[in-house]
Structures are given as C-alpha cells and as structure tokens.
Simulated scan of single mutants.
Amino acid sequence: MIIPKTREEIELIRESALIVSKTLGMLAPKIKPGVTTLELDKYAEEFIRDHGAEPGFLGLYDFPNSLCMSPNAQVVHGIPNDKPLEEGDIISIDCGALKNGFYGDHAYTFPVGEIAPETAELLKVTKESLYVGIREFRLGNRVGDVGYAIQKYTEDRGYGVVRELVGHGLGSKMHEDPEMPNYGKRGRGKKFKEGMVVAIEPMINQGTKRIKQLADGWTILTADNKPSAHFEHDIALVDGKPELLSTFKYIYDALGIESDEEEEFRAKIYD
C-alpha cells in the first residue's frame, strides 16, 4: 500500500536525506587509492551519529555495517572490508540515515583516481538515466513510466539493466510501496499520488544484465564481472512534480565539480 506523506513528513524525510547527502560529501575527498572501505564506513557512522541520526543500514535485515560499499563488478550490497581501493577502481557507496522516525537513502558511484574512459562513460550514462527517470515521476504517470525511461536510455547505449533489484518507496520504513524497477512499460504499474516519496536508483551494468550473489549472502555481482554503476536520489511528489530531497551538491562542492543537473528538481538551495 502506498503511503502519501504530509508536507511535515516530507520535511523530516528531507532532513534525513540531507544527512546522507552530507555524509557522501564528507567521504568524497577521502576516496583515494589506499583507503579501505572499512575506514570509510567508520567515518560515515561517526558523521551520521554526530548529526543526531542513526545509521539506517546498520543492523537492517542484519546488515553488519553503516554503508553498502560495492567496487567495480559489485552492483550493490557490498560489505566494507580491509582491502585498499586501487587506482582505476570505481566504488558505489549507498548510505542510509534514520532521524525523527524517517529514513534517508542515497547513493553515488565514485571514481578512484583516473578510470578507464569506457568506465567513466558508464558512470555518466547511469547518472543521466537517474534524472531521465525522475522526470517521469509526476502526477498522472505510473511506475512503468519511470522504469521504461531509465531502461530505454541505458539500453539504447548498450548497457544492461539489472532486473532483480529495484528502487522503492521511502518513509518511516526504509522500504515501502511501491517498488520502482529500472525497466518497464509505459502506462503500467501503480499510479503516482501527491505526497509520495520514493528512492529511484538505476543499477546499470557495462555488460550483461544478469547478476550473481556471493556466499556472504549480501554482495551482488555482475555475472560477467564487468563494472556496474549505481546512483540514487530521494524524491517527493509535490504539487504534481518531482522534488529532490537529497542532493549531490556536497559531493560536487568537495570535489570542485560544477553541475546544474539538479536545478529543475530542486525547491531549496542548500548551504
């Protein structure tokens, strides 16, 4: 069942989402060759707690850490460890925060040093597809409209769209209705309602759409071991249009990147 949120609840979700956004921004300059994902995880947990929130992933479904850290061919749900990142890696960082009874959930795939041009193109297209999908999250549309837009944008460029893992509704639970696949057919699926909050998160593979799971019960890999990218925003349906509750601004500020990609979806300017 879809649970529309009041304006007050949307603001509480925004608060949690922005803690996640700031956490990713804090981590951004630390993502260099030689750092371990476990070190980054510890930085994140401390930062989230210092901002009056609880790590949203720690203990959720018995997950052992605060961040899902998924390098290279890992799609999502990678467990932080002591292996140093290397030049040319990519690393998907998925982070959650719980404050005032509501969750934020937000992800970004970072390059580690200089990466191969074809890998950089995968990251670029996957992030672009996120905004392509967000544009379809509006009153009168359905879940399939978002999925279709993401699927067409990425498959037209030769990439594989993961089927088994999807975005989701967001609120007092990390995962609420509706599921938000990154594939679909126009006009199909649940209809969007004013006040809905969802996490849209393309998971796009350089090669096959097929995946496999490690014996740890968490880590998802591409079946052909080619790289995968993952970007995620939290979005509310406000006055019939998508409004971003999360932002990549803090990442871009930390890395000296200029971007106006969020402007059409942003109702507030963040310090």
Rank of each mutant, 00 (worst) to 15 (best):
I3F: 10
L12V: 13
L12H: 04
I13L: 07
S16V: 09
I19M: 08
I19L: 09
L24D: 09
A28T: 05
P29Q: 05
K30L: 15
V35M: 06
V35I: 15
E39D: 13
E39T: 12
L40K: 08
E45C: 14
E45V: 10
E46W: 06
H51V: 11
E54R: 15
F57I: 15
L60M: 08
F63E: 07
N65I: 00
Q74P: 00
V75F: 00
V76Q: 00
H77A: 01
G78N: 01
I79E: 00
P80R: 01
N81Q: 00
D82L: 05
D82C: 00
K83Q: 03
D89V: 01
I90H: 02
I91P: 03
D94K: 01
L98F: 14
L98T: 07
Y108L: 06
Y108A: 09
A116D: 15
E118V: 13
T119F: 10
L130E: 10
Y131P: 08
V132I: 15
R135P: 03
R135G: 08
G140T: 06
V143I: 15
I150K: 08
I150T: 05
Q151V: 05
E155L: 06
D156K: 10
G158Y: 11
R163V: 11
V166R: 12
M174S: 01
M174T: 02
P178E: 03
Y183T: 01
G184S: 03
G187N: 04
R188H: 03
G189R: 05
K191Q: 12
F192L: 05
G195R: 10
G195Q: 11
G195C: 10
M196H: 07
E201H: 12
E201K: 13
T208C: 09
R210M: 13
R210Q: 14
I211D: 06
G217D: 10
L221D: 02
L221P: 02
N225T: 03
S228P: 03
E232N: 13
E232F: 02
G240A: 09
K241P: 01
E243N: 02
L245I: 04
F248R: 03
Y250C: 04
Y250S: 04
D253F: 02
